[in-house]
Design a binder for these strands. Structure first.
Length: 232
DNA sequence: AAGTCACCCAACCGCGTCTCT
DNA sequence: TAGAGACGCGGTTGGGTGACT
């Protein structure tokens, strides 16, 4: 990251109300250090005045965003776990595009990250199905197939050290729904489908497995339509 | 090796809401 | 109560990078 950050941003001309030039674009390592240092000694909040008093040629907005989405110490980096993906799917079906609200349920994850995940991964699948990602049909597909597979994946990778977001009964207010999801295996069978029908063993749900760029290849699409017909 | 394409994600923007005076 | 400024959210953009040809 630091390599790109050290470059001069191309989009960088803007002025504050005092006529001082404001920087835009990627943050440099130096700027990051200034912001971190200033927040550690003065605390966060009052972003506009913070930006000025820290001597950063950035808007308060930009400082806030940089801190919340990247510099804050408790931010988790790396791929979303199956547990996290499952929680996102469930919470999105409940709350829609309320990214910040969804992010509250995933400690260490930012609304921006979740939003990006949704747009790049989930919406991509919907596009390939030629469905609106908020449509009943797509949500049904997610519920009947994606979620059970995530649960299965969670089971496979269960280990004492695995990071688990708010899924434990004592912490998760949505447990009843999670139980519904887990029983959707039954719903799956109820539509007369075997999991093997869907080539599940080769499926790449998260872009992380064998040679497939996307889960919803034509076979799975066909299988989905099979489900779809039953749903209708 | 070079060019092109697609994906990912950090950062920006606009706008609605909140808070303070 | 109204106005102004700060804050937060969701949508969008653009650059970097890796895969593919």
């Amino acid at each position: 990251m630091s390599s790109s950050k050290d470059k001069i941003p191309k989009r960088c001309s803007k002025f504050d109300e005092d006529g001082n030039e404001l920087r835009r674009g990627p943050w440099t390592l130096e700027e990051d250090n200034v912001l971190i240092g200033h927040i550690s000694s003065h605390g966060e909040g009052q972003w506009n005045s913070l930006a000025k008093s820290a001597g950063l040629k950035r808007t308060g907005k930009s400082c806030r965003l940089r801190w919340l989405n990247y510099l804050k110490p408790d931010i988790k980096r790396g791929n979303l776990s199956p547990q996290e993906q499952l929680l996102i799917l469930e919470l999105h079906s409940r709350w829609g595009n309320r990214w910040s609200k969804i992010a509250e349920q995933l400690p260490g994850r930012t609304d921006n990250e979740i939003k990006n995940y949704w747009r790049t991964r989930v919406q991509k699948q919907a596009r390939q199905l030629k469905l609106d990602c908020n449509s009943t049909k797509f949500l049904e597909a997610v519920r009947l197939y994606w979620m059970p597979r995530l649960l299965e994946k969670m089971e496979q990778h269960k280990s004492p050290s695995s990071q688990t977001p708010n899924l434990a009964p004592s912490h998760n207010p949505f447990l009843p729904d999670m139980e519904i999801i887990s029983t959707s295996h039954l719903s799956f069978d109820g539509y007369g489908m075997q999991e093997s029908d869907c080539h599940a063993a080769d499926v790449d749900w998260f872009g992380e497995e064998i040679g497939m760029t996307s889960f919803w290849n034509s076979d799975e699409l066909w299988q989905f339509r099979k489900v779809d017909q039953c749903v209708d």
